[in-house]
Simulated scan of single mutants.
Amino acid sequence: MARIEDSPWAVSVAQVASRPGQSKEIDETFPAPSGIGDEIVGVDEGADVSVTGSFDSIVDGLVLTARINAPVHAECTRCLKPIKRDWTVNVTSFFPYEDASTNSNGKSKDDEVDIIAGEDESEDTYPLLGGGAWADLEALLRDTLVEELPLQPLCKPDCKGLCSQCGVDLNEHPDHHHDVTDIRFAALEGLKAKLEGKE
């Protein structure tokens, strides 16, 4: 059985766990977990994902406040050019202590956490492992990055896209156009040509 401390996503938090008011800075690079997006838009498995922030100890667990930066590959939805750029996401997540699953009045701490988390819908909860000594960031990285991937990535905000007639990149050829005759008026164009020819 694999040990949590051998996981590439494990962060030791034993020095701040169960001691409210303590803080542990984090500025590390982790491999991107699998399953973040697809060939169109996503983060390649194993790519360097940096996490900068801190674990802050409170009575019920640890709160991670961090900035996650990952290299996202995508394809512009207008001109289909490949896009590679770093994507930065701010995250706040809660890691409750394992031994604090119930309190003295029998209520689940998770119920209380849900009430508190309801104030900030973006807060996610992840378990501490190894008796509360380790925070495993694999699921957090996957969840956060999948949630924040751009749905319609653009190579630039004012991308003009491709010509609907021939596929020419309108960013490179802004004056490109086609003289199109509406087929509904083709007979009239023919009549006009005949009339003009007779004059």
Score class of each variant (00 low, 15 high):
124 D>F: 07
155 C>L: 04
178 H>R: 08
86 D>S: 11
72 V>N: 02
160 K>H: 03
59 V>E: 15
91 V>H: 05
85 R>T: 14
76 C>W: 00
89 V>P: 07
99 D>F: 12
166 C>S: 08
194 K>Q: 15
186 A>Y: 13
158 D>R: 00
170 L>R: 05
195 L>I: 09
4 I>R: 01
9 W>P: 05
90 N>Y: 11
148 E>M: 12
145 L>Y: 05
123 E>N: 12
59 V>M: 13
82 P>H: 13
161 G>Q: 00
187 A>F: 05
58 I>Y: 08
139 A>C: 11
25 E>A: 13
67 R>L: 13
36 I>Y: 00
193 A>W: 13
36 I>Q: 06
138 E>T: 03
14 A>L: 00
108 S>M: 12
63 V>D: 06
125 T>D: 10
55 F>M: 08
55 F>A: 06
87 W>D: 01
108 S>H: 12
68 I>Q: 04
107 K>R: 15
184 R>Y: 07
182 D>S: 02
18 S>Q: 15
48 D>T: 09
60 D>E: 14
92 T>S: 11
138 E>H: 09
133 A>R: 04
43 V>A: 06
12 S>M: 09
93 S>H: 01
170 L>S: 03
194 K>V: 10
5 E>A: 10
117 A>T: 07
111 D>N: 12
159 C>G: 08
13 V>M: 06
123 E>C: 14
85 R>P: 01
197 G>I: 05
